[in-house]
Design a protein around this nucleic acid. Structure first.
Length: 267
DNA sequence: TTGTGTTTTATTGCCTCC
DNA sequence: GGAGGCAATAAAACACAA
């Protein structure tokens, strides 16, 4: 949100009149008798339902920075609006309660969108981190394989020079070393996948969401995430992120910068 | 100035809960 | 059935590059 973009409609506050056009009249159920009104008038005046029903603005008007500020503050406190709070806010702001409700609705939608973006970024960086972990382990594995191979070679040389071989034949020795290396590799992969909460994390195709049914992943185990108390079946108390990547990366989630606590908070 | 992309305000329709 | 929530969408307001 760019605060500088808001225009303070002082003319409206000072009593300029706006006219209804055909579109907004029909849209608002006011097909007849267009009436003039000031867009922003005194809170009491605007709060008067009858007055508001009769006199609708010509066009959409942006809220003033002051109004937005107060709404934002209120949203930070609680992102849902009980009727009483809606009424109070509307009165305070000189808006219709419906406008306050709509603002909260849209604000929640914006918050959700941003949250999804944040969750995507977090999942992506977790995935990248896991991938790089995996790559380095793979390299380490290769290195160890080579080491085993060269040690086996040395051992073989010693046995040929000295006493006759009593152990497994040469190919068998090498094979065994390979098997051991393979087992180690498998163990490492197992560890990786269990650290990441199971399957579907490492995939050569690229980042992908873990299947969680509706793709909105639960908050528990998410680093720094404290689920808020109730879950009413909406998105409350939920993050879209699961703890899937949490243990794997152990990187603290970025702080909530500008967004309100919303449905859960980072601690 | 104008075309275009983004943001904000508002409506509609559907769904869920009480 | 009404109230309130959400997703999808329209349209106005705005920013900005050409």
């Amino acid at each position: 949100m760019e605060a500088g973009r808001f225009l303070f409609d002082s003319s409206a506050l000072q009593g300029n009149f706006l006219f209804l056009d055909e579109g907004s009249r029909s849209m608002m159920g006011m097909e007849e008798s267009p009436k003039k009104r000031r867009f922003f008038c005194s809170p009491d005046e605007l709060f008067d339902e009858e007055y508001y029903d009769e006199q609708m603005p010509e066009k959409k008007r942006r809220l003033t920075p002051e109004q937005v500020l107060l709404l934002e503050k209120s949203f930070e406190e609680e992102n849902k609006l009980e009727p009483e709070r809606k009424t109070q806010l509307a009165k305070k702001l000189g808006l219709q309660p419906r406008q306050v409700a709509v603002w909260f609705q849209n604000r929640r939608a914006r918050w959700k969108t941003k949250q999804l973006e944040r969750d995507y970024d977090y999942l992506k960086s977790s995935y990248d981190s896991l991938l790089s972990d995996y790559d380095s382990i793979l390299k380490e594995n290769e290195k160890l394989k080579l080491e085993v191979y060269s040690l086996t070679e040395k051992l073989q040389g010693k046995e040929v020079d000295g006493a006759p071989m009593t152990g497994p034949s040469e190919p068998a020795l090498v094979e065994e070393a390979d098997v051991q290396a393979l087992q180690f590799s498998v163990k490492v992969e197992d560890r990786l996948s269990s650290r990441s909460g199971g399957s579907a994390v490492i995939d050569e195709e690229g980042p992908q969401l873990v299947d969680s049914g509706d793709s909105y992943l639960l908050c528990e185990n998410y680093p720094g995430c404290v689920a808020q108390s109730e879950d009413d079946g909406s998105d409350d108390g939920q993050s879209y992120l699961h703890g899937v990547f949490a243990a794997a990366t152990e990187q603290p989630h970025h702080e909530e910068e500008e967004e309100p606590m919303g449905w859960w908070v980072w601690s």
